[in-house]
Design a protein around this nucleic acid. Structure first.
Length: 168
DNA sequence: ACTCCGATTGTT
DNA sequence: ACAATCGGAGTA
């Protein structure tokens, strides 16, 4: 169990960095993104890591949020075990998925039931929430779609091009 | 069928 | 700076 402290937004087909922006639109991989919100869109990256998104858009919009950082609240022992004895603090989408046991088996999983659920957190001050460009993307990297909690341990990086306030 | 390469991470 | 590692996406 933990608190999500870092996310990235990915728009629909109009967002060139999104998996939904394929020439064919909906594909076997991104099909879950095109469905209703509240489901897990899981994909494999570089043939090595699993990454998890939460579908956020209305049915057909293909919008999702990549979960990139988590501050554990409890169960750190289990997370450490899943991570092969390494630091349970899960920074980055790959490590995070490993820590909380996300694999392709959770593709399309509804996040309201075990084994993985998503619940509301609590409000944070405006100052605590920082915004930056997305990490790792080649295209549209300058879009202010990355949101993270200032100073949180689970945040992967504090990039230079961060700024305050809502997205332009 | 075949090539290219990625919303990453760990090592050199 | 680069390797690990593989299936999706694009081209044919």
């Amino acid at each position: 169990m933990g608190v999500i402290v870092e996310t990235e937004a990915y728009g629909g087909p109009e967002d060139p960095a999104s998996h939904a922006a394929t020439v064919s639109g909906r594909t076997k991989r991104n099909a879950v993104m095109f469905g209703p919100s509240g489901y897990a869109y899981v994909y494999r990256i570089y043939g090595i890591h699993w990454c998890m998104n939460v579908v956020t858009g209305l049915d057909g919009q293909a919008q999702a949020v990549l979960i990139r950082g988590l501050d554990p609240l409890d169960g750190e022992d289990v997370m450490r075990e899943r991570r092969g004895g390494r630091d349970p603090i899960a920074t980055g989408p790959g490590r995070l998925s490993q820590a909380i046991g996300v694999t392709g088996a959770l593709q399309g999983h509804r996040l309201t039931s075990p084994p993985l659920t998503l619940e509301p957190g609590w409000p944070l001050s405006e100052q605590a929430i920082r915004i930056s460009g997305r990490i790792g993307v080649r295209t549209a990297a300058d879009r202010p779609y990355r949101f993270y909690v200032h100073g949180a341990r689970g945040v992967s990086r504090h990039p230079v091009n961060c700024y305050r306030g809502p997205p332009a």
